[in-house]
């Protein structure tokens, strides 16, 4: 292990936390500036991809097991669809966020609904992207052509 690895790892350690923090900022600040669930999900996944590039795939898989990601993919979509059904049960149309807070004059229902839906999108996108990276990066360790 040469010096290059040390520099790489120290840099990744320094960058990792700010990237994750930025991802959450983008996630929850999407109402006010550019951003939202899609971007935040991708940025969050990129943080872990960077970690895997520096510290190895097995290390990353110990931190976030693939089983957890499969769950996250489905759960993100479920949050989105679940918000739709919640508004349905509250008496509105599918994904009509106004019924979440009908007494408000400041569109509080819309704000809440958008936050929930974006959270679902972020979770689904982050899990899917990291899952896909795990699959591609983990393939090389499997038996190669000659071992069949």
């Amino acid at each position: 292990m040469g010096m290059g690895h040390v520099i790489l790892r120290v840099t990744i350690k320094l960058l990792f936390a700010p990237i994750v923090l930025f991802a959450f900022y983008v996630q929850f600040h999407g109402d006010y500036g550019p951003g939202g669930g899609f971007q935040a999900g991708v940025i969050l996944a990129v943080a872990f991809v960077l970690y895997a590039l520096g510290f190895g795939l097995e290390e990353t898989k110990r931190a976030i097991p693939p089983r957890f990601l499969t769950f996250g993919m489905a759960f993100g979509v479920m949050i989105y669809v679940g918000t739709g059904f919640l508004t349905l049960f509250l008496g509105g149309n599918f994904l009509d966020y106004n019924v979440l807070d009908p007494d408000s004059h400041h569109n509080a229902g819309q704000h809440l609904g958008i936050l929930m839906v974006e959270f679902g999108v972020g979770m689904a996108v982050a899990s899917t992207m990291l899952q896909i990276f795990y699959l591609f990066a983990g393939r090389e360790a499997e038996p190669s052509d000659d071992a069949w």
């Binding site: 999407g30 109402d31 006010y32 500036g33 550019p34 951003g35 939202g36 739709g84 994904l95 966020y97 400041h106 569109n107 819309q110 704000h111 609904g113 958008i114 839906v117 974006e118």
Partner: peptide
């Protein structure tokens, strides 16, 4: 209708949810 400053987010998540 939505009251969110970022119109793109509003259209993405609410109008075209």
């Amino acid at each position: 209708d939505i009251g969110v400053p970022n119109i793109v987010t509003g259209v993405l998540a609410s109008y075209r949810g």
